[in-house]
Design a protein around this nucleic acid. Structure first.
Lengths: 325, 325
DNA sequence: CTGAAAGCGCTTACAG
DNA sequence: CTGAAAGCGCTTACAG
């Protein structure tokens, strides 16, 4: 059914060496006439070299594995879509698997990707890996690029956002608009943590001599539902006129919570989120959010992955990106 | 760096035949003691057979390729997430690439997947393929399962929803609730078409002796933005009190359009969508939609793919699923 | 300008 | 119960 290189060679009246060399663009030494004859036949029969045979020899798979706690999480999935486009363009094949975020599961996936010889792994995680075999951002020689707020030692650097400054700006803006009682929905310790965002909230209140009221600061899971209940709780306090959410997922839940209480979002209580996920653009009234530069972020990560593949032992710099507010 | 089977064999004091047989569960004939010794060493060294070498021999890649016009399209991506979970469970590696929906691009991706020897392709498409080499749902011997409203000849059957009945139910419900002037936002010919949904709309109006008014029937692109503008246009007619949207993407846009006109969604104009994508649950007020049984749908597709891999020449039945309203 | 031969790391039929 | 050998379909150093 599928032709072999030997058969193509026979059809063209040359050796398979010749076919191989021409297909791999190492065919300068052959006469143009031979080249054309071989290429024509390859074209006619839609021949493609057996993927496994060539990779066995070249020891390159062209595969890149992505690990992400949940594909539904919009921050990661927005990045993944863009990275996928970049790297597909560059000739790689990407695959994505959900890890559920647990270390054991994640390591099992490193193993799994290792078995199919991916050339690099991109790992979205909130796990600080304890396992000693994840050294120098690699697993059995396969480079791993982390997206993890810098919690893992990384040979390939991390990408940081100017979270603190941006949240300060947003808070200052709220305070200038006479908001005196501003709630906070923050993540708990179970998953990602955003210390800079939280710190900016507290600093803004303190420096403006506003009261920090623990009853309108809710620490919760990282889900829409959690944001929903948190907002409802904070809204118990009739003075609250704004809520800063450490993440858009929480903000989206907060929006629903405020609405379902019969309050008017933004008029009664303004919600501010963080990340600028697409979904937020679609709710009404629109809620403000601090915008991660997703395209740049994805480009930087794509670049890091390519570099890691090409020079696994070369250290890469951290990178700092600017949010938009 | 990475150990070879020969080295493992040497460490265990056996031949590589033995190691191979044991790892491939064909090792009944070996003494339990040998088995254990080999497995221990494999474990200790975290050895895994070279993926390319074994596949070269077995001629099986364990790869499945998905093609989808856009990963952002929630109908497809909801299914893909679930299918990915099913098939990953079954030991396959899934990859997804966006096609932009054009036939040329889609064929290029068949080619691409063919080159890496995927065992099957799942293709979400609105293209009726003209190319003769897509025969019997396969491309160069690789089975293709289509999700395409039955527009392509399919060896492996299609999945159909009882769209007509469900839309009729929804329309009848609206009409019973005294809605007299109901708009329609439907897709144009550029992409998927949903003739049954549209027909149900017309039939419902006719059988209830309501006027079919072309000025409140908008045919448009398949995007949130298109739904947005369509709804604004329909709302020009002050009698309109409901709009049926042939798809949730259009409904989400419609929701925004109504809101931005200063009207109250559901109170002034009720919106009804189709599919039950997750995003719709998050907007307020909530808008009604007809619910595709995504989990069942994904299970059926997963099953079709597995069967197509195991028996590429065996014809599969069409499948009919029930919507929820 | 071209090809024969070795080798990549496995699996499997075969022999013992 | 176990292993030597052939072969999967390529690529690449080497020889001419």
């Amino acid at each position: 059914m599928k032709l072999t290189m030997k058969e193509i060679a026979d059809l063209a009246g040359v050796s398979k060496t010749t076919v191989s060399q021409i297909l791999n663009d190492k065919g300068e030494r052959f006469s143009e006439e031979t080249r054309q004859r071989v290429l024509k036949i390859v074209e006619d029969y839609r021949y493609a070299p057996n993927y496994f045979a060539s990779n066995l020899v070249k020891n390159k798979s062209g595969l890149i594995g992505i690990i992400v706690p949940s594909i539904k999480e919009p921050f990661a999935s927005t990045l993944i879509t863009k990275i996928q486009a970049n790297l597909t363009e560059a000739g790689f094949h990407l695959m994505t698997i959900e890890s559920s975020g647990e270390e054991r599961e994640e390591i099992a996936l490193f193993e799994r990707y290792c078995q199919i010889s991916v050339e690099a792994i991109l790992c979205f995680t909130a796990t600080k890996f304890s396992e000693k075999f994840i050294e120098k951002s690699c697993y059995h020689g396969i480079p791993i690029v982390f997206v993890d707020q810098g919690i893992n030692e990384s040979q390939y650097g991390h990408v940081y956002l100017n979270e603190y400054d941006t949240v300060r700006k947003a808070m200052d803006d709220l305070i200038q608009k006479k908001h005196q009682t501003i709630g906070l929905i923050k993540e708990n310790q179970e998953s990602y943590t955003f210390p800079n965002r939280t710190k900016a909230y507290f600093d803004a209140l303190n420096e403006n001599h506003l009261v920090v009221d623990p009853s309108i600061i809710v620490e919760t899971d990282f889900s829409i539902d959690a944001g929903y209940h948190a907002a409802k709780q904070i809204a118990q306090n009739p003075n609250v006129s704004a809520i800063f959410c450490c993440d858009d997922t929480l903000a989206l839940g907060g929006y629903q919570g405020i609405y379902d209480l019969g309050l008017k979002v933004n008029e009664d209580i303004e919600i501010i989120g963080f990340d600028g996920i697409e979904m937020l653009q679609h709710v009404r009234p629109q809620i403000r959010t601090l915008q991660t530069p997703f395209t740049e972020f994805a480009n930087v990560l794509s670049e890091k992955i390519l570099q890691a593949i090409n020079s696994p032992n070369q250290k890469q710099e951290d990178c700092y990106l600017k949010m938009i507010f």
